[in-house]
């Protein structure tokens, strides 16, 4: 077992067949499929996915489904590929020159890497919240309507409505309703991040990707974002990358552990944290490494 694993890790080839008995990632993924949910509930799906930055094999044969209307947390030590995996779903990796991949990334049953896919349209369906709050240096109002204005929506009543709805959904409305014209940069970090969430919601996506959304925030602001995520999953599918184990166990429904480009284990969060199947997972979630 040890030697086989060693060989696979060294060569790291995508040529390894899915049903090869030694391949841990596919085992974990299929284990999840069988144990928890039927495939039909998956909003996002990756099959035989391999990602490279130049020669560097970043994600190795990932087969994984992401449940709709749930929070899926991607965890693992830095450099394990989880952020790369997250950014596949709105094609943010396209801006990296050396990025190339094989396999499929399905939204519903459409491969979003098909040649006929317009990335602008994809990103309206799959929104993203980034690690550091990154509001535009404009007013709160202008931040929220940006995604609509670039679609050519300029009617004031429509925009006003969208602003109020998005800010209410992101639990920011009561704090800012009187100064919508104020610069977004004057808000606190936590408020800025909720504004970024509101900005994403205004476009009415199906999926929200969150790349360590609370890593730059204090615990109180983080807690607010976490509450918000739980609220939002009723309407949206949420995928979150986090380094915070407590956060993953608190908010997520499903949890995927990545290590060195492999999907080591993937299951519902409770089992992951109480009965991890792999030693590596156990060591990571209990804080013994990573």
């Amino acid at each position: 077992m040890m030697t086989t694993e060693f060989l696979i890790d060294t060569h790291g080839t995508p040529r390894v067949k899915l049903d090869a008995p030694v391949y841990r990632a596919s085992e974990a993924a299929s284990a999840y499929d069988a144990r928890v949910k039927p495939q039909s509930t998956f909003k996002l799906h990756t099959t035989d996915l391999n990602v490279y930055y130049g020669d560097h094999h970043v994600l190795k044969n990932i087969n994984m489904g992401i449940e709709s209307n749930a929070i899926t947390a991607l965890i693992g030590p830095s450099g394990c590929g989880k952020s790369t995996y997250l950014r596949l779903f709105n094609r943010m990796n396209d801006y990296i020159d050396t990025f190339h991949m094989s396999g499929q990334v399905l939204l519903g049953d459409k491969n979003i890497y098909d040649k006929d896919v317009a990335t602008e349209e994809l990103r309206k369906l799959v929104g993203m919240v980034f690690q550091k709050p990154n509001p535009f240096p404009k007013s709160i109002y202008d931040n929220v309507v940006y995604g609509l204005k670039i679609q050519g929506i300029n009617k004031k009543s429509t925009l006003d409505e969208a602003v109020e709805r998005a800010l209410r959904q992101s639990a920011l409305w009561d704090e800012v309703k009187h100064d919508l014209k104020k610069s977004a940069l004057s808000l606190s970090g936590g408020q800025q991040q909720r504004l970024c969430i509101a900005r994403t919601l205004a476009v009415q996506p199906d999926v929200i990707l969150m790349d360590e959304p609370t890593s730059a925030l204090d615990p109180i602001a983080s807690a607010k974002i976490e509450d918000l995520m739980v609220e939002l999953k009723k309407e949206y599918t949420i995928v979150i990358v986090t380094h915070n184990m407590q956060q993953a166990s608190r908010v997520s429904d499903n949890c995927a552990f990545f290590y060195m480009g492999d999907l080591v284990e993937y299951s519902d969060t409770k089992s992951m944290f109480t009965h991890p199947q792999k030693t590596q997972t156990q060591n990571y979630v209990t804080g013994r490494f990573g």
Binding site: N90, M92, Y95, E120, E121, R123, K124, G127, M128, F130, N134, P135, F136, Y146, G147, I150, Q151, C196, R199, T200, V203
Partner: peptide, 9 residues
Amino acid sequence: EASYGLGAT
């Protein structure tokens, strides 16, 4: 990134 992420060209 924020702009691209919202579907801007």
